[in-house]
Write a protein that binds this DNA or RNA. Structure first.
Lengths: 190, 190
DNA sequence: CGCAGACCATACGTTAGCGTATGGACTCGG
DNA sequence: CCGAGTCCATACGCTAACGTATGGTCTGCG
């Protein structure tokens, strides 16, 4: 990457460090864990650092949402481009991407559900999530149409709903994401 | 019902009133909205009343979780009993129950997603949700087995995941719960 | 070397909420 | 009518966090 020091160099912090810490806290403890002083303690620093890099807590939250939107959007375009395959092959490629826990270094696997929970309290986040849902559904619908499904919109809704649900179930029961998605695809594309 | 005054009689409050208010707040603003003084303001009273009926905030939360467990369990047994039909008929009856927003007067439609979000921060809730997931999956598996599905466990997982996902999507896009569930059933039982 | 700016620590003042304590008010049986 | 119990209001001390203000430290550049 182009960043000189991607993680902490033990002394100076960058805004990205705070954002990464924010995603970790979000995945761990949900939206109420996004507080300045606990984050600072977690990073072994003080809030003086935080308020140097950010105007206030809302600024960090806004940047987190913006980053999530960028990453999720990149996931979509990457999926579209990577799947030169037509029809079913594209969907299987997509499954590979989804089941591998997208955001990786930032956040991790639990970010998406936590962010959806966060959306319940902050309208700004709710709007971002709603927009992303619509976006993803549109792409999925295209895939299912290519694959020759009779009702691509319905199939997209079901596939996406199952994806969200399996994410949830991975947290309570330890459901296997990939196997579930493949089975769902088999059910929808007989 | 057997309750003498189910809602407020404008002066005296009961524990159930506080619990109902708690579910409304939970559905509205998520777990962080479960605070004593805001709840009191919402009920037009003071926290003196709250601490008369409950030892502390944890007590209210515990009773809320307990009540949710009872109601959800009743939903399950009602579903099992109500569906004297075998196989597919039982599942269709179940869809009718699910899509109608179970908890009704308490809470409402948004309670389940909010509670799942709440589970992320409080282990007590997480355990209750995990147990309920396992319980529901077991019942669903039985239904799919009766309906003659080849892999009832997988089908149950997918149907339940789709249900959870459609709940989520109802909040962002205004997805139609019942139609989605019926379509999912068609996909799983060809 | 020495200063300027970037970065962080600390000490405030303020707010929101928790739980307690204490003193009403209202009700009902005697 | 009156006391006992039920239910609520208010005031208090406490804590955690917010955002500000101010000073300290380090680093590179001139």
């Amino acid at each position: 990457m182009t960043s000189p020091a991607l993680q902490t160099d033990r002394t100076r912090l960058t805004p990205r460090d705070w954002i990464a810490a924010g995603f970790r806290a979000l995945a761990e403890g949900g939206a109420p864990a996004l507080r300045v002083e606990p984050l600072a303690r977690g990073l072994g620093t003080s809030k003086g650092s935080f308020y140097w890099h950010f105007a206030d807590l809302a600024a960090l939250k806004a940047q987190m949402v913006a980053l999530w939107q960028r990453l999720a959007e990149e996931e979509i375009t990457a999926s579209v481009l990577a799947s030169e395959a037509e029809g079913r092959g594209a969907l299987q490629a997509l499954i590979g991407r989804i089941s591998v826990a997208p955001p990786a270094a930032y956040g991790g696997a639990g970010v998406e559900p936590a962010l959806r929970g966060w959306a319940r309290t902050e309208p700004h986040v709710a709007q971002a999530v709603a927009a992303m849902d619509a976006r993803r559904l549109a792409v999925l619908e295209g895939f299912f149409a290519q694959a020759g499904h009779a009702d691509p919109a319905q199939a997209a809704r079901l596939f996406y709903a199952a994806t969200l649900g399996l994410m949830e179930l991975r947290l309570t029961t330890g459901a296997d994401m990939r196997a579930g998605l493949e089975a769902q695809l088999d059910a929808l594309l007989p």
